[in-house]
Amino acid sequence: MISVAVVGAETPGNVGTIARSMKNFGLEELLLVNPPELDPDGEAYGFAGQAREDVLPNSREVTFEHLIENYHTVGCTAVTNEDARKHVRYPFRTPRELADSLADVRADTCLVFGRESIGLTNAELAELDEVCSIPASEAYPVLNLGQAATIVLYEMRSLTLESTQLPDPTHDRASEREIEGLHDQFATFLEAIDHPEEKRDKAGRLFRRLVGRAHPTDREAVTLRGIFRRAQQRIDSRKK
Results as ranks from 00 to 15, higher is better:
P135R: 04
G146W: 00
Q165T: 13
I193K: 00
L161Y: 05
L125P: 02
L161R: 15
A174T: 08
C132E: 08
I151Y: 03
E197G: 02
E198V: 15
S137G: 11
E198Y: 09
V152G: 10
G204T: 06
R213I: 01
L166A: 15
P135A: 02
E197I: 04
L190S: 05
D201C: 03
G204P: 01
R177D: 10
V211M: 11
T217I: 09
T217D: 14
I134K: 00
A136T: 14
A123Y: 13
R205P: 01
E127M: 15
S137E: 06
R225T: 11
S158P: 02
P141S: 08
R219C: 08
I179Y: 10
A174D: 11
R173Q: 14
L128M: 10
A203V: 02
I151F: 07
H215N: 03
A203M: 11
L206P: 01
F207I: 03
T188A: 14
Q185E: 15
H171L: 09
F189K: 09
I179C: 15
D168Q: 14
P196R: 04
A139Y: 13
L166T: 15
A148T: 04
T188N: 10
I134Y: 01
L159S: 02
T217F: 12
A149D: 05
C132S: 08
S133L: 14
P196M: 06
I193Y: 00
V152E: 11
L128Y: 08
V152K: 10
E124K: 11
E180R: 15
N122C: 09
G181M: 05
K199P: 02
H215F: 13
T217L: 14
F186R: 07
R208M: 03
V131N: 07
S163Q: 08
A174S: 13
D201R: 10
S163I: 03
D194A: 12
A148N: 01
T150Q: 15
M156A: 12
E197D: 09
K199F: 07
E176D: 10
P216C: 08
R157Y: 05
P135V: 04
R213F: 00
M156L: 11
D201T: 08
E191P: 01
L210S: 04
E176F: 09
G212A: 08
Y140K: 04
L206D: 06
V142D: 04
R225G: 14
G212V: 02
V211S: 11
Y154S: 14
A221G: 04
T160G: 10
A221L: 05
L125E: 05
E155Y: 02
D129V: 12
Q185D: 09
L182M: 12
R200S: 08
D129F: 10
R157C: 11
A192S: 10
L166E: 15
F186I: 02
L166P: 05
V142R: 06
V211E: 07
L210F: 06
S158V: 11
R157A: 15
H215D: 05
L159E: 05
L210W: 00
L224F: 13
E124V: 08
L159V: 04
